[in-house]
Amino acid sequence: MTIRPPSLPRLSAFTRRRTGLILAGLAVMAISGAANGRQQATPISMDIGDEPGRVATAEQIVEDGPFARQLVFFRSAEPPGTIVIHTSERFLYVVQGNNRALRYGIGVGREGFQWSGLVRVSRKAEWPDWTPPPEMIARQPYLPRFMAGGPGNPMGARALYLGSTVYRIHGTNQPETIGHAVSSGCFRLANGDVIDLFERIAVGAKVIIRHGASI
């Protein structure tokens, strides 16, 4: 089954109650290494926090519109299989060679704007576990301190860990946030799309993260 992001089959009760979570959804990962990277203010955020446990089926993909997975023209000197992430555009490209790339729509969290440069995929995980950071526990004290991987986990269906950093490309249980700056997380794809990406990318693949120039 595929759905368009704006029409989730079921919005949880949690969505209705998510007041005051904008800052609370601080970090799926703590921030480190920011001092070395270029900083950029997070663009206008979607007014939404993490919704732990919100269930999205594994099959959800962005089906239509600009954030749907598609082949695009993309000039690059990088070898096929390289991932290029343009945070300001909200796109992730997988270089295919011959001036083309497979493009995925992504959501970028505050943490995703902290670092730019070249890393490699150091590890891949299916249905990764989730440990909400202490800042988030402070705002949402009812959260479990650890949540085993699964459909309701904000980390979604797959995760690609980036080098020895705390950054990762992961799925989401909130596919409607794709294309937006969301308040937490690094680089999130709809679950169906992150599964597709996971199959294409090997451990060791190059990942280039770019933010666009800042004044």
């Binding site: 600009p66 598609q70 695009v72 023209f73 993309f74 000039r75 690059s76 290029v84 343009h86 555009e89 490209y93 790339a101 493009r103 770019r210």
Partner: peptide, 13 residues
């Protein structure tokens, strides 16, 4: 998609 109309430094011309 931006395609050719992307900046020269970002994959276009």
């Amino acid at each position: 998609p931006r395609g050719l109309n992307q900046l020269w430094s970002e994959g276009g011309i």
